[in-house]
């Protein structure tokens, strides 16, 4: 049986306490005594991403701060905007009728994460913080030893995907993120001193090792979506199997209808680079149109251009690039008035 490495588990009852524990245990500090450097302290919510990674020894933290017992860590509130606590499970989000109706892309994305069991365990906060993935990296300690490791765990080693790459090319793979991006989400962090709000679109960066502009001493606590009046949204995912699998290409799209014309539009992609991203060049041409085929083709072309898949997930580069284009077309077509 493949087992977790040893660690000390702490169970704070509040986010403030969690942030305090992060600070106390040297948030961000690397333990270099274990062959590959590893964070000394880490947060865990549902554990569906971190525990497999720990079993494969991609992380071997000394201290694990579980957010499972934080009070009021889960829940969905609506008062004009939509407030989702970070510890809300993906199942709860997928099954919430309000989200399904008004923030459709998010419900659709939450519903296609991995499997029912993992959606019962995994949280929206965890999905937002999902580690980037790469088939040179998401392998056991044995496999990576045979390979000689890679940049993501050992900064002095090359990137195996493209040996000349100055940065890690691991892939953003969280399903809910592009949905949240097109829905205009803001996320709230707390640290030992206080808190801050960040637009989700500002959170991610093109770096497989540190994909989020999030400090190691912060805890993600809430996600806020603005009023969704007039918006229609959807999320489409390409994967090998209809369950279990991470996306190999995915597109979220949202448009706001003003009569028969689109007044605002957003298109986001993931699994096509290290960063989930809004594709402005795809959204811009949509505004003022009726989502006619020509316009949609322009948007799809822009997504195709923005998609930069590499050979480090399932599927192939050309297949995934093409999928980005096709999924964009299909997503936008589905947003036309019935």
């Amino acid at each position: 049986m493949l087992r977790l490495p040893r660690f000390r588990l702490v169970e704070p009852r509040s986010y403030g306490e969690a942030a305090q524990l992060l600070a106390e245990n040297g948030a961000g500090a690397l333990d270099r005594s274990k062959g590959t450097p590893t964070l000394r302290v880490m947060l865990v919510a549902g554990g569906t991403d971190l525990f497999p990674n720990m079993k494969r020894r991609q992380f071997t933290p000394e201290v694990l701060i579980s957010l499972a017992r934080v009070r009021d860590a889960s829940g969905i509130q609506r008062n004009g905007h939509l407030d989702i606590s970070a510890g809300t499970t993906l199942s709860a989000i997928a099954h919430d009728p309000g989200i399904r109706e008004r923030s459709t892309a998010l419900a659709e994305a939450a519903e296609v994460v991995s499997t029912p069991q993992l959606r019962n365990m995994g949280t929206i906060g965890g999905n937002i913080c999902l580690d980037t993935r790469c088939n040179w990296y998401d392998q056991s300690l044995f496999w990576r030893t045979a390979e000689g490791f890679c940049m993501k765990t050992n900064p002095d080693v090359v990137c195996r995907v493209a040996t000349s790459s100055p940065r890690c090319l691991a892939v953003a793979s969280a399903d809910t993120v592009p949905a949240l991006l097109v829905l205009g989400a803001t996320v709230h962090f707390e640290d030992a001193e206080g808190g801050r709000d960040v637009a989700l679109s500002e959170l991610y960066r093109e770096d497989g090792i540190r994909p989020m502009a999030m400090r190691q001493d912060e805890v993600l606590t809430d996600i806020t979506l603005p009023e969704a009046d007039g918006w229609r949204s959807t999320y489409l995912k390409m994967r090998d199997r209809n369950s279990f699998d991470f996306p190999v290409a995915a597109v979220a799209a949202a448009v706001r209808w003003d009569g028969t014309r689109v007044s605002e539009a957003r298109v986001a992609i993931t699994a096509l680079g290290s960063r989930p991203q809004l594709v402005e060049d795809a959204a811009r041409p949509l505004v003022g149109t009726t989502l006619d085929d020509v316009t949609i083709a322009l948007a799809a072309e822009a997504v195709h251009k923005a998609a930069r898949p590499l050979d480090n997930t399932s599927g192939t580069i050309s297949q995934r690039k093409r999928a980005a284009l096709v999924l964009t077309e299909r997503a936008l077509r589905s947003l036309r008035p019935a």
């Binding site: 169970e11 579980s66 499997t115 069991q117």
Partner: peptide, 26 residues
């Protein structure tokens, strides 16, 4: 043991979860 097969599914308060990724303390 990695959450990739479902063989270890048990119910926690009636909800199916994977025992291989669940800490008993929690």
């Amino acid at each position: 043991e990695l959450g990739e097969c479902g063989a270890c599914t048990v119910l926690v308060d009636g909800v199916p979860v994977l025992a291989c990724l669940t800490l008993p303390a929690l």
